[in-house]
Design a protein around this nucleic acid. Structure first.
Length: 325
DNA sequence: GGTAGACCTGGACGC
DNA sequence: GCGTCCAGGTCTACC
């Protein structure tokens, strides 16, 4: 299957733009510059590989993606497959919106970055965010791998392994006892919160369509997210950027380090947080992208371009905390 | 409305 | 070896 992309799209740059591309069931295969994962389609789980022809970025830029599947995918499945890939890679991000961001923050115009990787569903983004709170990055990777291994749907014919399993559906997680998640997936105290979230997605109490509707005001989305179990200010703002709402900063310990080491801020963390808000305020509704690309640029300056990171080695140790250690 | 303390887990660190 | 600390925070109970 072929999927058209915006004229400025480069898969290796835009898929490897946010840490979630390293979390199961996503798998970026460095030698072939291909993104593998299992997605859930109406006919069942399918493993897909997404690549972009072209020996160099200059050649690849704007060329249609090739989406391969491990089995034949019928016509009925194709719109859903396209929808999920489009969401992950933000192919529906309009070039004029990106251009507006580049006008405001010219540092990223030459490279063209600004589309940040996310999950095929809001559900997966929310769980990935909850599993990234109050833990070191390798632990987040473990939690996501185990969630897929224990509760993901196996793809027939591929055997059981993290690369042949889907991300668990909210329906599956909603049926589990919290203690089961805790012991089998090592999610710790996040167990009951994740199960509660799953139940809310299943019951319709959380409607992704409402959160993703551009007509829904940011502040309504923020208020609704904060009400969700396991979601505080940091997680709410992070889920917002994953929803394409970049006007709030998910400030955390990583931000404080960035402020201290790169921006040269001094003083206690709470004061630094306030100063960070002021620092990025000029970028308005685009401020997260300015902040994030700065952070991502720092990681890459230390560990090489993200599209060269192997999930099990560099991919486990790229955060500032790991670099410091 | 602002703020200590507890909270799973696993790796790093100091002794 | 073993205790302590803390990592891409959240939640509750207090004041």
């Amino acid at each position: 299957m072929s999927l058209a992309v915006p004229a400025d799209y480069i898969l290796a740059r835009d898929a490897c733009s946010y840490g979630y591309f390293l979390l199961a069931p996503n798998y970026w295969h460095v030698p072939t510059q291909t993104l593998w994962r299992v997605v859930e389609l109406p006919s069942g789980p399918v493993r897909i590989g997404i690549s972009q022809p072209g020996a160099t970025w200059r050649v690849a830029k704007g060329r249609a993606l090739v989406v391969s599947t491990h089995r034949a995918v019928g016509k009925a499945d194709r719109p859903e497959l396209a929808r999920q890939v489009t969401r992950m890679l933000r192919l529906d991000e309009q070039p004029d919106v990106l251009a507006a961001f580049h006008r405001l923050d010219g540092r990223w115009k030459r490279l063209g970055s600004g589309r940040l990787f996310r999950s095929p569903t809001m559900w997966e983004d929310v769980v990935k965010t909850v599993t990234s709170c109050n833990v070191a990055w390798p632990n987040t990777m473990t939690m996501n791998a185990r969630l897929c291994e224990v509760y993901g749907a196996p793809v027939p014919g591929l055997g059981v392994g993290a690369k042949g399993l889907s991300f668990p559906t909210p329906e599956t997680i909603a049926r589990q006892r919290p203690l089961s998640l805790r012991t089998r997936c090592r999610v710790g105290y996040r167990d009951a919160r994740i199960v509660a979230l799953a139940k809310m997605f299943v019951s319709g109490e959380v409607r992704p369509g409402w959160f993703e509707d551009p007509a829904t005001p940011d502040e309504d989305v923020r208020a609704a997210l904060i009400e969700l179990p396991g979601i505080g200010p940091y997680a709410a703002h992070n889920v917002m950027q994953l929803l394409g709402r970049y006007g709030h900063l998910p400030l955390d310990s990583e931000s404080v380090r960035h402020a201290r080491t790169i921006l040269g801020f001094k003083g206690p963390a709470p004061r630094m947080m306030k100063r960070l808000e002021r620092h990025y305020a000029p970028f308005g509704s685009h401020k997260f992208r300015s902040y994030w690309l700065e952070l991502w640029d720092f990681y890459q300056s230390k560990r090489g371009k993200a599209h060269t990171w192997d999930r099990e080695t560099t991919g486990r140790t790229f955060t500032a905390a790991m670099l410091a250690g």
